[in-house]
Design a protein around this nucleic acid. Structure first.
Lengths: 255, 255
DNA sequence: CACTTAATGTTATAATTTTAACATTATCGC
DNA sequence: GCGATAATGTTAAAATTATAACATTAAGTG
């Protein structure tokens, strides 16, 4: 509501931009006002900074996500994807070159990569890259291009070629929809090329999808179920339904 | 030190992966142990999670940076780079296609990009991409490749070609060393190609360096001072020293 | 310049978090 | 199964942070 208040906030935002935390005490001294004023600056108006136990922290990168409290329920919702990824991780071997698809499904997998001595991760997703960038045992290859915020991923016209150069061992693919007759689909068309290229070059292909994706159809088809070697899922009905087909169908790994 | 402890940490890391915070109380319930145990999990071993005023937060993306406390001094140290970037931002115009170099110098610039209606940012640095990925008015092009953690940037053998395709308007380049006789240098050799390509294709070239970089020589030379149109710096002696040469030299923009 | 209002500072109190010491329960090897 | 050790739980005291109410200072207006 105040000109000076806004300037103080900008000042603090600078200080925090590199990702540390600033004690309320120091923030007050830095701005030359009392702690109470900083407190009010932070509560009066919406800002990218939150106060957590006396320390100022930047509401999470990149700039938008506010620091909110997860409830126990919300947190436990990750268990499904976590279980899925635990199962998927069982297929990973020392020294593998993995293609990791975009989306939120495979994110839990990445925290399990630190147990290996040496791996290579190939991805076209920013969130995947971020989750892996800190691991010293993982060689990260990010396929760049134009950024699509909705899927946190990149797209470019030569991504197919780039992927085919890479000697990918195992492709871990996620999807927004899996239909037994029509095939596997996702939301965005720019995801089709990298997914297909990865499926084409990888030696083993894994489709990782939770139960909610079955019977769902999304705008962009990119594969049939027969393109995969293994489907990792928590849908107990999936195995029964899959048997019906006559073409060579993937194994089901139930998490 | 403990198998279960590690599993709990992984579990919590999952829950926090999307960027919220989790109250110690909820974390304890989620894991089915007491708050004290979670406390110990977090203090006994190094982890990406820190406890801030009773709430668990992910130590900042990407993965490595621990949540540390900035002192007042450290925080005010950002003012130098902030001033530099404020000056540099003055050269940016609506609709520009900017090449943003890797390193920490240009990061403060990115928070000033939200004032424009429409911009394109080209970069080969993960931290730059992260800072820009949330801005709805910025089109982001990330040049991918193999990730180099030390500089948070990517390198690949066809980066030159990729850059030259892009129609970059203004190149904002940072450096680790600037020597009046020997030229401009950085630490890592993989940075040379993208920097040179950007300098070659851009219509305007800006070198953004604080005073501490002058007179310093680093392993990899990538340009001479004459390659730049403008040098943005806070070194008051820079202008005087630059006049000495006879070749066409850049303007100095003093912040 | 007095008056009004907004902004900031101060203080005391309430709520919460942290720490430390000790009690209890599990785990492992023999 | 028993003893030793590690892991976890419980409790109370100490430290810190949050809140609210009121005092003070600064800014804006007729």
């Amino acid at each position: 509501m105040n000109d000076r208040s806004a300037r103080r906030l900008a000042m603090l935002q600078e200080a925090l931009a590199s990702g540390g935390t600033l004690h309320l005490r120091d923030a007050a001294e830095l701005c030359g006002v009392s702690e109470m004023t900083i407190r009010r600056d932070l509560t009066t108006q919406p800002s990218a900074i939150s106060l957590l136990g006396g320390r100022l922290v930047m509401a999470n990168y990149p700039g938008v996500t506010p620091v909110y409290d997860l409830t126990e329920q919300q947190a436990s919702h990750y268990h499904v994807k976590h279980r899925l990824c635990q199962r998927a991780a069982g297929f990973i071997e020392e020294g593998d070159t993995l293609f990791i698809d975009c989306g939120s499904t495979l994110i839990p997998l990445l925290s399990q990569l630190s147990h290996f001595r040496e791996l290579t991760v190939v991805t076209y997703a920013l969130n995947v890259a971020n989750s892996v960038a800190g691991l010293p045992n993982v060689r990260l290859v990010l396929l760049g291009g134009l950024f699509y915020a909705s899927s946190q991923s990149f797209g470019s016209d030569n991504m197919e070629a780039a992927i085919e150069r890479l000697g990918i061992n195992k492709a871990l693919i996620s999807a927004a929809g899996v239909d037994y007759e029509r095939g596997v689909s996702c939301f965005h068309f720019h995801e089709v090329a990298p997914k297909q290229a990865a499926i084409a070059t990888a030696m083993q292909r894994f489709l990782v999808v939770d139960a909610s994706k079955f019977g769902v159809v999304r705008p962009a088809y990119f594969a049939t179920l027969a393109d995969f070697d293994v489907v990792v899922t928590d849908d107990e009905q999936a195995p029964a339904l899959l048997v019906s087909g006559s073409t060579p169908l993937p194994d089901i790994s139930l998490a």
